[in-house]
Design a protein around this nucleic acid. Structure first.
Lengths: 227, 227
DNA sequence: CTGACGACGATTGTATTCAATCGAGGTGGG
DNA sequence: CCCACCTCGATTGAATACAATCGTCGTCAG
């Protein structure tokens, strides 16, 4: 087992429950916990420096989000996403995100707009430095903030789930497209700033479509890289 | 069959964790636990005849699904859905379900088709007997099976979440529309059986649109019945 | 040699117990 | 009389301990 999301809690100062859940999800997305691998409660507890109880709670939440699957007395395993499911994720995303962007153009707060601009600049910097995993996280954040700016909690929740799963599937992927992707992000922010829902919808739709075709073009096997 | 959500576990034979989660969710949907009310772990444990630990795990899952909200040391409360959120649920549903129905027309298995027909007949029977809460559950199940028949786990998961939330908002609602609704369900099944994705999409789109307009027409206050 | 049966180890599920934190009510001072 | 502070009860968060269940290996009959 490699060590990446290892005992960051250190000696003292326990990790909060929410932080624990995020940490495990991050590690699943980053591939620390491989698809199909079994997550025994005790090893997880040892890894994150807590007891089994908070681990169980975090894993229940992750199960509800669809990252792991558990069956009674059979343990918890990381789900394996196949090509078809990756396609489905993008298809649903192509439906939901334009809706969210259109509403965001009408309802966004100045704070949210500022946050978007901040994310864009962080994204550009990450491209410069070649920090690809950071880029994936920023990308997720960007789309989550757009969804949150739509003012629809439903949309926000669903897009957030999708966004994280998509980051998982794409994982270490498409560094070439990063340039175009973040240029499109700037266009999205512009449309949202102008308050033009039609433009926002259209730009986001183009953005998602480009991501889909890029994924399809180089789709050999998404998450089946079992070594 | 079970009553309100009381200690159905009885003397011996504990309830399984999944069953516990479903039971709590059912009770939230049925209004046993009112929106805004606080769910203390101990009272929940006593009510369902288990200890605090499984209760906590179930509530974590329900939190991920968006039925309850918890903040550290502040306890867990049932979320309150307002008019705007009810609208959002229906709007997102109007996007997702036609997609699912179109794919279901192409990919459904005979077993799933049979299950749909069974649900339709159960729905008719429930209308006859006037069992409205049963009807709400059957309605959710119907849409969940359609989504499952689409072959997309992503779609299935999201539609299931939406369906349950919608059942919650509608709760004891629209008995007049039940007739039309289940007639439309029959049309949906027919389109799915014929394997006509275009027709399935169109019928489902009409079905959702009708539900939306019906809800709007009689929407005074959905879940704000705080006593 | 092969198949099924049974006991062991490992892991999950649950309960009990203890520590940490938040809110409410009372008390003293201004 | 009002406000700030503080103590205390209640509740959540976590850890340990125990019970229930499953997978696996060894054994034995056929």
């Amino acid at each position: 087992m490699e060590r990446a999301g290892a005992p960051q809690a250190g000696p003292r100062g326990r990790i909060s429950p929410q932080a624990l859940c995020r940490a495990i999800r991050e590690d699943v997305i980053r591939g620390v916990h491989r698809p199909g691998s079994r997550l025994t409660e005790e090893s997880m507890a040892a890894r994150y420096g807590v007891s089994r109880v908070p681990v169980r709670e975090a894993l229940r939440a992750l199960e509800a989000e669809g990252f792991v699957r558990s069956r009674p007395y059979a343990g918890i395993v990381v789900v394996e996403l196949d090509d078809a499911e990756a396609e489905d994720l993008l298809e649903v995303r192509a439906l939901l995100e334009p809706l969210g962007a259109g509403r965001a153009a009408l309802r966004r707060t100045p704070e949210q707009l500022g946050r978007l601009k901040e994310l864009v600049s962080l994204g550009r910097a990450a491209i410069e430095d070649g920090r690809l995993d950071e880029l994936a996280r920023l990308n997720s954040r960007f789309h989550e903030v757009i969804a949150a700016a739509s003012g629809s909690r439903t949309l926000s929740r669903l897009v957030t789930q999708l966004s994280q799963k998509i980051a998982w599937v794409y994982s270490v992927d498409l560094p070439r497209r990063a340039q175009d992707s973040w240029r499109e992000h700037e266009e999205i922010v512009a449309a949202v700033e102008q308050g033009d829902p039609e433009a926002a919808r259209a730009v986001v739709a183009r953005h998602i479509a480009a991501a889909r075709s890029a994924y399809r073009r180089r789709a050999p096997g998404p998450a089946d890289d079992r070594s």
